[in-house]
Amino acid sequence: MAAVEQQNQAAEEDVAVKEPLDLIRLSLDETVYIKLKGDREIQGRLHAYDQHLNMILGEVEETVNYYEIDDETYEETLKSEKRSKPFLFVRGDVVILISPSLRQ
């Protein structure tokens, strides 16, 4: 009896969203979009996270935006560079936002 109750409770806990991090728990093994400090964004499958928002992602695509400055005219052009990585640990303190990614 008690064991069944506990199991039900656990199942309820698994879907209930009581605090922000619960939303991230529901994205486990799903593709997420993450905006990072330093004009970077990444998309990837969320495999692990902790309360600091440290994360491990799989099949990652990173986009870095930066200004390139011409050596002579000092003219700036906005460039964007994409990189793929199979598995990536991301440190929580560079994370700005996490969102369940829209399917493309």
Binding site: I56, K85, F87
Partner: peptide, 11 residues
């Protein structure tokens, strides 16, 4: 640290 790239077979 910003990122750590991990070996595929270790995850």
């Amino acid at each position: 640290v910003r990122y750590i790239q991990l070996p595929q077979d270790a995850v």
